[in-house]
Design a protein around this nucleic acid. Structure first.
Lengths: 131, 131
DNA sequence: TCTGTTATTGTTATATTATAACAATGTAAT
DNA sequence: ATTACATTGTTATAATATAACAATAACAGA
């Protein structure tokens, strides 16, 4: 599950660790604040790590929130098909893993028959706790 | 089709006009630059208009690009179910209107049976022109 | 018409998110 | 040792967005 962490650089590990420990998406500058004790002092150090981690699928960016969440899939390489549920009240975010949904969207074609190699879907609502 | 524009305030009309004239999504500060001749001098004036226009569905925000695009639906009130195709080469963006897709997503339930009142979907690929 | 209420606008300042540019260091193969 | 390449460190700045408050306009009810 965490095997691939071995291939990560020092800074990438540090940033991934802090995101994985968080139950919720973290903002870049909140990450920066939290890793300053580990020696990462400047934004580029954090953003570089974030870029790489997104690229390899260890984390995902929640675009509507400018925040980053750890990927909980066992494989953690799915960077091209992401879906999230976001509670608009408590801002709780969960990754949705529905093979039915991902099949449907991965096979989606538009009117001109164009297919896509990547998508990101964000659902919004009020979660059970907040209801 | 443009009936509802009557209910918009002066600044809202100015901002909507410029976005509607653009074939592509516009960034907030590009909008600001373009409306300065019309008297809107500061970011808050643009962002307020953008917020309102998004709220009433006249425009949509492309979250992955921090840009705003005019809604081409006749009704222009659909603010809660949006889907876009984005070319990663030329950055061309089109709103997808597929009743099949919107039905599928509007009815989607997660594992706990939770339904959502809103979603935003962004597809990425290479458009025909760029291929 | 007056008056209170609400929406809209104008304005300054500042917060938040993200990248450019370049120097320094580490790593690993030859 | 030398080269090549990835990673890190650092400073500065760009790009995106909001807070806070004053001024004005729009408008309904007394």
């Amino acid at each position: 599950m965490a095997q691939k962490k071995e291939y990560l650089s020092k800074n990438q590990k540090i940033v991934l660790d802090i995101i994985e420990k968080s139950a919720q998406p973290m903002k870049a500058y909140s990450i920066l604040f939290n890793v300053q004790k580990k020696g990462l002092k400047a934004p580029p150090q954090v953003y570089r790590a974030l870029d790489k981690l997104v690229e390899i699928g260890k984390i995902h960016k929640i675009e509507s929130r400018n925040a980053f969440i750890a990927c909980r899939n066992s494989a953690c390489t799915i960077t091209n098909a992401t879906a999230f549920s976001i509670c608009e009240s408590c801002e709780d975010v969960k990754e949705i893993s529905s093979s039915k949904l991902s099949k449907y969207l991965s096979n989606f074609q538009d009117k001109e028959g164009m297919k896509y190699n990547k998508y990101n879907l964000e659902f919004f609502g009020i979660c059970k706790k907040c209801k």
